[in-house]
């Protein structure tokens, strides 16, 4: 079936998820590096939870973006042929 197609691009939900997780990752990473007092550390049992969660979020965000680049969503232009 020959139909015109294009990529979903910004409407790809993976880009949305990746962006929000990435923003959260940056904020938590910075908080973990610069905004963590000894009292904060004691609260979470000595773990720098902001730092580690920040790193994990950034890795997840990167995975979403890479995934959406490698396997873009292809949208057919004509609804009836989709």
């Amino acid at each position: 079936m020959a139909e015109r197609k294009h990529e979903a691009g910004a409407f790809d939900i993976r880009v949305f998820i990746g962006s929000l997780l990435g923003i959260y990752g940056v904020i938590l990473l910075l908080t973990g590096l610069f905004g963590t007092s000894d009292a904060d550390l004691a609260k979470s049992d000595g773990l720098n939870v902001n730092l580690w969660t920040g790193i994990a979020l950034l890795v997840s965000a990167a995975l979403f973006v890479v995934w959406s680049r490698l396997r873009p969503v292809v949208v057919p232009d004509d609804p009836d042929e989709g």
Binding site: I27, L28, G35, D40, L41, K43, S44, D45, N50
Partner: peptide
């Protein structure tokens, strides 16, 4: 309340 420092708490 007991475990999360500001930052993670917001998330």
């Amino acid at each position: 309340r007991d475990l999360l420092p500001n930052g993670m708490l917001g998330l």
